[in-house]
Amino acid sequence: MTAWLSGEWPWYVAGPLIGLFVPALLIVGNKVFGISASLSHLCAAVAPGKVEYFRYDWRRAGLWNLVFLAGVLLGGFLASQGGPHSIHISDATHASLVKLGIHDFSGLAPRELFTWHALLTVRGFVSVVVGGFLVGFGTAYAAGCTSGHAISGLANVQVPSLIAVIGFFAGGLAATYFILPLVIGGV
């Protein structure tokens, strides 16, 4: 039992559980499962400025989404209470990443890149700040992220979502093979 609360779940348990958030949110309030819209709602709430895109009633459109997002943070905290956790990746990935210059495999993300201290290095700054910016810009431009397009959209058999998901992988592969070696290895 405790292993289920603190260990790694097999894919065939994790995947269906993630998929069930689609019907759960529809049944609770006719809400379409998606996370990235809440980034727009936060902008609309905090600093809409004179930007047309953010001039809408964010409370009405997205308060539920922001509350859901606060829950995600809380859920992450609860999950971390089982103690420190390292990820058992495949030997092939381990070898590829060592070659790239990653040596600390003890956390959820490599500490060479994802600590406040590393933020002052080029590779930490690119991973966190540049990467974060592209996540926010890209999901707003594509009108959805992994949850909205890859899960909700593909399940609803939408062509726009299929195009978006192909884009996710095109961008991800390009970054993995061409940008990461420069960022992590080079500088």
Binding site: G132, L134, A140, I163, A164, G172
Partner: peptide
């Protein structure tokens, strides 16, 4: 948008 997000991902 999808490609830009993919790079960030």
């Amino acid at each position: 948008g999808g490609t830009i997000f993919g790079i960030g991902w």
